[in-house]
Write a protein that binds this DNA or RNA. Structure first.
Lengths: 201, 201, 201, 201
DNA sequence: AATGAATGAGACTTCATTCAT
DNA sequence: CATGAATGAAGTCTCATTCAT
């Protein structure tokens, strides 16, 4: 029991360091961020790091993973078979995107990781996250085809990839936008394109 | 004439260094790349750089600009008012995308710059390129609306942004693909989404 | 208390580095002296410097200031109004000069700073020290005139400057002399000149 | 004869480079001055130097020697035995000092060499010049003693050294002064001190 | 004889990591 | 466990000097 408390305390400190690193990495980028910066952010000695993380790259990796997990959770917690009509799927899509936006608005620095930290961490790591997201998106599309509310001739795999690309790059842009209203219009334009394309009906 | 030859030779050396730097930066990223790496690539002394470029950042900037220019040229050399029907526009779009792919296939490392060098060079520089591309895309869309072969209710500005996001992120993915055939399928899926969306007609 | 001890230790190390730098700068001059030389002198890693001093120029400045302070202290700690007769002033002058000599003999490298480090550090810094010394000397002269043991027609300001020039340049020469006896004769010749000139009485 | 012309032309170029180097060294100091600066000053390629001078240090040495020679000439061209009275010697002294000032005023950069280039060139070289000057000054003093217009108990050698120190350091100061009038007053104060000291008669 | 492109030794500086306290 | 002083590898940049043209 004593041991358990000890461990919890350690885990808490570990978490604090991860939080601080997340902020610092987002603010300055991997290379410009120094271990000292993170230490200062917490008022710790920088030697203390090395009790919790092997080295700078190790911290970066874990920060990256944690950020990724937050975003992937949003997509993965939706049931790909829940929608039974195009309207439901459209609503579900918008719901997911708005959750992304909400997370990004709440923690504006998070999204920098998708794109700027790619060099620092394993390229493979990001590829893995993207693959998971693509598969999930494909499940949504397949569900629509099965239930005949999406075009039967859809190239599921590639279209899923296109959509994921759109989501990732889109959210990056979203952060540069001045206000929530602009972001919502952007999402609307994206969803319209996704569902109806640019050709007149 | 003597002077002219001299200058040409210098320009050639300058070009060689830019070429080598492009390769090295693409291979290792800005931070990991050392001046020495670039020097070795050419079999030159590293001091030679500083006869042609002020410092490391200066080289990075110029490499970045050169790469950008190649890609932007592709989009900007097409006439946004050339298409008079949806079929023509579709063909034009596919033509542009295939030119991007061709360039990317020919020089596989180029596209890394769009996304990984953003920290190294001015963020503004990339923003500027993207803005130019977005405006050009908007012209294409407006042309289609004017000639009634695109949906009249299109949010031109935001849709243009969405499409540019799609192109930039899409081409990045394209590089990770195994073969040209896969890339072509990806482009097809993208173009289909762009023109017709996922809803059945 | 713990903190206090820590700080003292740091200050001590800072002082050691200043001492070593003083020796090295005096031995080789600012430009020829490398950070590595100073590090070696102390058996430290050269990185250790940068924990105590911003950069090479910063060290030079502080060494220079410290050396200056030692010499200026000698002149400034005497009371310019203490002497009431020419004999007393002569004695006071000799006392000051012998203190300079003693300091120079004790630390033979110190005086090089007055003349050889001028380029490295701010020219203004030396000018400031000299001005302070000149003013102090002028006070001595004025005291003598007021008490009528010095010539009434003395150009106080300019004569003070001449004397300071003599002291500074003179002490530099003193260092090149073989023995203490030679130095004392030099000082005697200087003081004789100062008080009585070369014209017979 | 052809050979002679050739040689003259070379000597002329050599002289030009020495002139330019003198200006540049005086302006920036030995270390900060680059071979390129001197080359630019003349509109020459910097490789051309190495046809005339072995290396940077070699140029510095020769520039230094040339500058020294100009100043020493002033003192050495006067006859130490010419004066037969204290008034004549005083006039002679003032004449020499005013020639120094005139040279310094005409070429304001020259005097920097006495003091700031000491590190760059051999310390011995300057010592040699100073020794020559001291000997000459001693001859003047001895002449005065022999002819009984100077104090018989003068320590000739040391007083000569003191006077030379005064001249060298004094002229340095003179350069920092705002106008010719200020310089003249300084010289007057110096000469008064030299002849009569500060004690009232 | 003149040039200036190329060179590389050498100097400075940073910062991730270690380890004695 | 925490600390932060010490370290030195690694990287950038300068500039005197050489040498092919």
């Amino acid at each position: 029991m004593r041991r358990r408390l000890q461990t919890e305390k350690l885990d808490q400190r570990r978490e604090e360091i991860l939080d601080a690193s997340e902020r610092i990495f987002a603010r300055k980028g991997y290379h410009a961020a120094g271990i000292a910066d993170i230490a200062d952010e917490l008022g710790l000695g920088h030697g203390t790091f090395y009790r919790y993380f092997k080295n700078k790259h190790d911290i970066a990796l874990q920060v990256f993973d944690r950020v990724m997990m937050r975003f992937t959770a949003i997509g993965l917690e939706e049931d790909p078979t829940a929608s039974n009509s195009i309207e439901e799927y459209r609503a579900q899509t918008i719901r997911i995107l708005h959750r992304w936006l909400a997370l990004a608005e709440e923690r504006p620095h998070l999204l920098r990781f998708f794109h700027e930290q790619t060099v620092a961490v394993d390229m493979d790591r990001l590829a893995h996250v993207i693959e998971a997201y693509t598969l999930q998106t494909a499940r949504f599309l397949q569900n629509g085809i099965d239930k005949a509310f999406l075009r039967a001739d859809l190239d599921v795999r590639n279209t899923a990839e296109v959509l994921v690309a759109l989501i990732f790059e889109g959210t990056r842009r979203a952060l540069g936008m001045p206000d929530a209203e602009a972001r919502r219009r952007w999402v609307a334009a994206g969803v319209n394109l996704m569902f109806d394309g640019i050709r007149p009906r």
